[in-house]
Amino acid sequence: MTRLTAYVEGIGLLGPGLNDWPSGAVLLAGASPYVPQATVLPTPAALPPAERRRTGAIVKLALAVGFEATSRAGMSPATLHSVFASSGGDGHNCHEICQTLASNDRQLSPTRFHNSVHNAAAGYWSIAAGATPSSNVVCAYDASFSAGLLEALTQVVVDRTAVLLLACDVSYPEPLHAKRSIPDAFGVALVLAPERRESSLACLTATLTDAPADRIADPLLEAARSSIPAARSLPMLRMLARREPGRVVIDYLDVQRVAVEVSACR
């Protein structure tokens, strides 16, 4: 069986009631009760003012977790390959475009259009971070987190390079929200490296499995896990937060899931 191993060098987290990795880890480890509150998205300071004004929620989210993970890893974001996983891109922007195209005046704003690409967050990230290595952008609906994890892990294992994985999802406004009900923004970023370093946080070893995905006993965290594709990562993040060795199965496709063995390095 193929085993994909990588070392976690840094983590970034932002979601409902989860404001960054250290404070989120306390909640995920069960040290204090998890109370969901609307996700607060910071202004992306790393972008030039003109670009900053044009960015939507998914870009703010990606930049926040991306910079948190790379700064905690003590690695320059400019040199890292990146993998972006998202189910739907910028939902608000998409709604505005569809609304304009259904109106009598179909004139779109150029910024709306270039922000409509699924890789908008990847594009703004590369500009903000000055990152010129490859950037891969994947979507697999509810399986998007695991698709991104596999894309990142295969790059770490095959190309022996460090990779920044970012999984981000934001809500659609109505009427799309009724068809795709993602309740709030959730983003996670992991810096994954091929070799263990002194600063490595944990070791991940992933395999494909047909075992069912693990659920979370806490109903509020389970609600986030099951309703936001990027939050399918929560069972794995809980193990990282607890720093206990163990195995977790995360959601992927109909017949395949991803089993991840987690062991803390320090």
């Binding site: 699924h118 979507c139 496709l253």
Partner: peptide, 21 residues
């Protein structure tokens, strides 16, 4: 395993890279 690569006009060149890895 399956995924869609969605990087605008480079998307279906980059699928070769994902498949190779």
């Amino acid at each position: 395993p399956a995924a869609v690569v969605c990087s605008a006009c480079s998307s279906s060149a980059k699928v070769f890279a994902s498949a190779r890895r």
